[in-house]
Design a protein around this nucleic acid. Structure first.
Lengths: 187, 187
DNA sequence: TTTGCTATTGAACTTATTGTACGTTAATGA
DNA sequence: TCATTAACGTACAATAAGTTCAATAGCAAA
């Protein structure tokens, strides 16, 4: 890929992230993005069809990265297969979030958090689904599996939101313990 | 309140709901709203400052109604205090949703669901918080109470979303049973 | 019914934003 | 070096937001 393209793409992403941390998605104009990114109007539309398109691309980059890196770290373990091993998938995710690469936390706490949440949850679902099938579960066979899946990823997302809202006072390990306490009894 | 005001207000609400079921919030224009509602441009701005203001008013009306009506039905009971009483708060809520007063379901399944979700969850939180304090719980005292609160209301919202996404195949009673199965073990 | 008040109307208008067109400039990689 | 192509910037049409104002119509009380 052309060096110029990479440069503009990244400039636009950065500008967009910066603006998203400041104001709500629908109040951000293309004009502001290109002003902040310091690129021409035509250039923007050469890269992205619309603002929605830009958001989609940003989300794919952000969550694709965090999920695949978590997968790498834990591909040898199940969801919680090593008992209370510190290297649980969820703990890894929380640690990644705390390190806040790419300002995911800022985006999740922005006014447009809902937009990211859905992408986040979708990514999580794929991640958990993979690990879930290899899991030996209790006899909750009367509860549908996709209900449980949704419950787990949904609860996790809501917990992260709660974490951010309460200013991330807890450590990832603490949070992981809370999460186990409400999830493990039903696995 | 003047009969004319009521009429206009309701016409705008109806038009807005109809449009929200069809398309995403940020793609709806004021022009479309006033065309659908058959009111003048000036009239719209006499009632609502912005489109966001309209949304807020709609949410307050919708969720305020459903929550207070659930409160009325269950003010004599705790969260689940009557064992597996059919008149649990959650079952009531689900039944209300299924009856689909005011098209809440359509709004929650629209592309703009995120906007309603936060209102929904906020309302839920207040509702549950009230009932929660009167509840005799197990010895999960090492898990913060507001974490549990958030977990319950968050899970409920995510469950409703899952319900809608899977076309509401389950009955409210079934769903309530699923929900108990994942929530009661931690209470 | 009359009267005063107020909500609604419609049209015009300013400003802001979107998305496109096109000729020019400058960086890139072979 | 040279052909390619990304980026620039200016201009432009189309659409939308929000305001102003005079005119109209509906309401509630006398």
């Amino acid at each position: 890929m052309d060096r110029r393209q990479k440069k503009t793409r990244s400039a636009i992403f950065n500008a967009f992230s910066k603006l998203l941390a400041e104001k709500s998605y629908n109040k951000i104009t293309v004009q502001e993005i290109i002003d902040t990114a310091n690129v021409g109007r035509t250039t923007f539309y050469a890269h992205f069809e619309t603002k929605d398109d830009l958001l989609k691309a940003l989300c794919e980059e952000l969550f694709g990265h965090i999920i695949s890196s978590t997968l790498d770290c834990t591909h040898t373990h199940g969801l919680y297969s090593s008992g209370n091993a510190p290297e649980s998938v969820f703990c890894h995710l929380l640690q990644h979030l705390q390190e806040n690469e790419n300002n995911i936390i800022e985006l999740l706490s922005s006014e447009s958090s809902e937009l990211f949440l859905r992408y986040f949850k979708d990514s999580l679902n794929k991640l958990i689904e993979n690990q879930f099938v290899n899991q030996n579960r209790k006899n909750n066979t009367d509860i549908p599996q996709d209900f449980l899946l949704n419950h787990i990823s949904g609860s996790f997302v809501e917990m992260v939101l709660w974490w951010i809202k309460s200013r991330m006072k807890q450590t990832p390990e603490e949070l992981d313990r809370y999460f186990r306490a409400v999830i493990e009894p039903i696995l």
